[in-house]
Design a protein around this nucleic acid. Structure first.
Lengths: 132, 132
DNA sequence: GGACTGGTGAGAACGGTTGTCAAGTCGCCG
DNA sequence: CGGCGACTTGACAACCGTTCTCACCAGTCC
């Protein structure tokens, strides 16, 4: 079961590399199609899933249940501050949060603690653009 | 547009009151059906949504995108430590996390900061039951 | 009791995601 | 370089949770 490099996989990886924002599978699919590098939607999903499994890409889910993907700079565990309008992202680190999370888990007898910590906001540019 | 008290709404509220765990709309629907208090699924969703809007019930989304509901003790803002297997929940408070979140937002020029902070684990009982 | 109006439920619609499976390719081997 | 087999792909159907539709039902107020 060798892993093959195909035109499609390269295209998805490239699209990810090009945008520093978190983007949905459908947005990436649309980008590729627009550029002429057509790739089936199912393939986009499969490729993204594989990248996520390999730890090469980060995923997070919006409040509406859509998954967003991004090739993060840091491969180590970190959190995100994401613009809810354009997807622009700042990778942040929260040592105190990690400590707090595991202490809380242990204190209540829970094991295999996992935590979800994401920050959403509106970045300066989007605020300027959207009025408000 | 008066709000009416109906058998269905009362049933959903009661089902919520009976279980301290986070439960999905479908689980609640099933519980009601099993008990004989049949209520349409759409109504369960509508009622839950209304309770959430009124701040009477907390929602959170599982990693798989399903929404879970729970009548929390604290009405003030708080976070949850949830058993991923049975839904058992501990309401937790994280003043340091709140401060950290808004400081991070401000530091990067993001406004209207919102944060998602949830802890998932396996509670002692479920660990005992599931072996492992 | 009657009317007015919000509520209900069965089922269709939806939106994102995953599964299906025949047809297409990558890579290795000879 | 041509062949082969296993891995991939893609069009489309299936899924799943959730929301919408709309005709019928039932609280509330008088």
């Amino acid at each position: 079961m060798t892993v093959r490099m195909t035109r499609q996989r390269a295209a998805v990886a490239e699209a990810l590399d090009e945008s520093p924002e978190f983007r949905s599978a459908q947005q990436l699919h649309e980008t590729l199609r627009a550029r002429g590098d057509a790739v089936g939607l199912a393939t986009v999903y499969r490729t993204l899933q594989a990248l996520v499994d390999g730890g090469e890409v980060d995923v997070l889910r919006t409040g509406e249940g859509e998954s967003l993907y991004r090739r993060c700079v840091t491969r180590a565990h970190h959190h995100h501050l994401v613009c809810r309008s354009c997807g622009r992202t700042v990778e942040i680190d929260g040592p105190s949060v990690e400590a707090w999370a595991s202490a809380m888990g242990a204190a209540h007898g829970f094991a295999d603690i996992e935590h979800t910590v994401e920050l959403w906001g509106t970045c300066a540019d989007c605020r300027a653009a959207h009025g408000a």
